[in-house]
Computed example of a mutant assay.
Amino acid sequence: MATPETAESAVRVSKVGYLGFETPDLDRMIDYYTKMLDFHLQDRSADTAFLTTGADHHCVVLTKGGPKARVSVGYEIWEPIADAQRRLAEAGYKVERRTDVAPGTPDVLVMAEPGTGAQLHLFAAQERSDADNTPPLRPTKLGHVAAFTPELASLQKFYQELLGFRWSDTIGDFFVFLRCNADHHAANFMASTKYDGMHHVAYEMRDPNHLITMIDHLAKNDLRLHWGPGRHGPGHNLFTYHKDPDGNTIELFTQIDVIHDENKGFWEPRPWHETYPMGPRTWEVDLATVNIWGPINEREMDH
């Protein structure tokens, strides 16, 4: 697997901002996000809802339709919108600048993600939500989004050369992890001609106790895990997976690897790392890569 370097002329993404879903039952999905995951409902209309975990106006957008996950992904960028628009146009990509995408994001660049059918939204900042400061159950943020792609190498190149992502890890030759800030990954992609769309979306919990409290809450409401708890190899995050009402895979995680010094390129030392110092690598395809603790869910690695 080639690992292209980040281009100097790339748009500089700072974080994954939001994820868009289509759902046939808007009220059911709002109930799931507000009652199961404790998200704050910031705004809604007859066919759209905007939910958040914190200060940003939204990190989840629900629209009547589907069911379909990852119809759009919003990325916050460091630079002015006009500069990003110029860079992308010069690179040959069709980009539309819009003011009507969503409340809270009045100035957005919209473009097609190569090969997946999803829309990418680039914005400089969101308006603030009126959510309380992180209630006890609520995840701290939208952490990352994973998707299938029939053209992994070209999509990885697009993210690194055009959006400024950096390579973090690869499993075999089919699953790549990319970062846009200190977190191990904000986007990861699995090569597949069998599946398309979203692989999973992940929301971060503060620590293991916070994760356990949330899992207990889900269990009390008859919502069961289908994989985990466990610890991944790439990223080394503690993870659990369950399904939302539309059948989308939801990961709740904590303790993900972070890089504090890009010049050195090593992950922050952790006692469970395989090497010291630990840096980006290509992992063998085996049990310990997927879950250091043991059991594997075959569906999560089926491509």
Score class of each variant (00 low, 15 high):
residue 47 D to R: 06
residue 4 P to H: 03
residue 276 Y to P: 00
residue 24 P to E: 05
residue 303 H to M: 07
residue 281 R to E: 06
residue 14 S to K: 15
residue 112 A to D: 13
residue 58 H to S: 04
residue 62 L to T: 11
residue 295 P to R: 06
residue 109 L to S: 06
residue 203 Y to R: 11
residue 302 D to W: 10
residue 33 Y to L: 01
residue 21 F to C: 06
residue 162 L to G: 01
residue 155 L to M: 06
residue 242 H to D: 10
residue 114 P to T: 03
residue 135 P to H: 06
residue 214 M to P: 02
residue 159 Y to S: 09
residue 251 E to P: 05
residue 139 P to W: 00
residue 252 L to D: 10
residue 253 F to Y: 13
residue 131 A to F: 14
residue 198 M to Q: 12
residue 23 T to Q: 12
residue 234 P to F: 03
residue 12 R to D: 02
residue 93 Y to R: 11
residue 191 A to L: 14
residue 56 D to N: 14
residue 89 A to N: 13
residue 13 V to K: 03
residue 260 H to Y: 12
residue 247 G to F: 03
residue 214 M to A: 04
residue 297 N to L: 01
residue 274 E to N: 05
residue 55 A to C: 07
residue 242 H to T: 12
residue 54 G to P: 13
residue 122 L to I: 07
residue 226 H to A: 00
residue 102 A to R: 05
residue 100 D to E: 09
residue 298 E to M: 13
residue 82 A to I: 05
residue 289 T to L: 03
residue 281 R to S: 04
residue 214 M to V: 03
residue 215 I to C: 09
residue 257 D to G: 01
residue 240 T to I: 09
residue 293 W to M: 15
residue 228 G to E: 12
residue 72 S to L: 14
residue 214 M to S: 07
residue 154 S to V: 08
residue 123 F to H: 13
residue 228 G to K: 10
residue 256 I to T: 10
residue 202 A to Y: 03
residue 74 G to P: 12
residue 264 K to D: 13
residue 59 C to G: 02
residue 268 E to I: 08
residue 91 A to I: 07
residue 44 R to I: 01
residue 153 A to C: 00
residue 12 R to Q: 10
residue 182 A to Y: 14
residue 73 V to F: 04
residue 87 R to H: 07
residue 241 Y to W: 04
residue 111 M to P: 15
residue 151 E to A: 06
residue 104 G to N: 14
residue 62 L to G: 14
residue 162 L to D: 13
residue 288 A to E: 05
residue 277 P to M: 02
residue 34 T to P: 06
residue 123 F to E: 08
residue 251 E to F: 00
residue 268 E to Q: 13
residue 90 E to K: 12
residue 89 A to I: 02
residue 35 K to W: 03
residue 291 N to V: 07
residue 226 H to G: 02
residue 71 V to I: 14
residue 144 H to V: 04
residue 191 A to Y: 08
residue 51 L to D: 04
residue 98 R to D: 11
residue 163 L to H: 11
residue 252 L to S: 12
residue 170 T to C: 15
residue 184 H to C: 05
residue 136 P to L: 10
residue 110 V to F: 13
residue 73 V to L: 12
residue 291 N to Q: 08
residue 56 D to K: 11
residue 1 M to W: 13
residue 160 Q to E: 09
residue 20 G to F: 09
residue 258 V to A: 13
residue 197 G to N: 10
residue 123 F to L: 15
residue 83 D to A: 06
residue 259 I to P: 02
residue 248 N to E: 15
residue 105 T to Y: 06
residue 184 H to Q: 14
residue 211 L to W: 04
residue 242 H to A: 10
residue 139 P to Q: 07
residue 260 H to V: 08
residue 143 G to V: 01
residue 99 T to D: 15
residue 99 T to P: 10
residue 155 L to V: 04
residue 3 T to I: 02
residue 146 A to T: 06
residue 93 Y to Q: 09
residue 259 I to Q: 11
residue 29 M to Y: 00
residue 139 P to Y: 02
residue 61 V to F: 10
residue 185 H to F: 03
residue 162 L to K: 15
residue 10 A to F: 07
residue 170 T to D: 14
residue 48 T to F: 01
residue 252 L to F: 02
residue 167 W to F: 15
residue 229 P to V: 11
residue 73 V to P: 07
residue 267 W to P: 01
residue 64 K to G: 11
residue 274 E to P: 01
residue 299 R to T: 12
residue 220 K to N: 09
residue 98 R to M: 09
residue 69 A to R: 03
residue 65 G to T: 12
residue 26 L to Q: 02
residue 298 E to C: 06
residue 147 A to K: 01
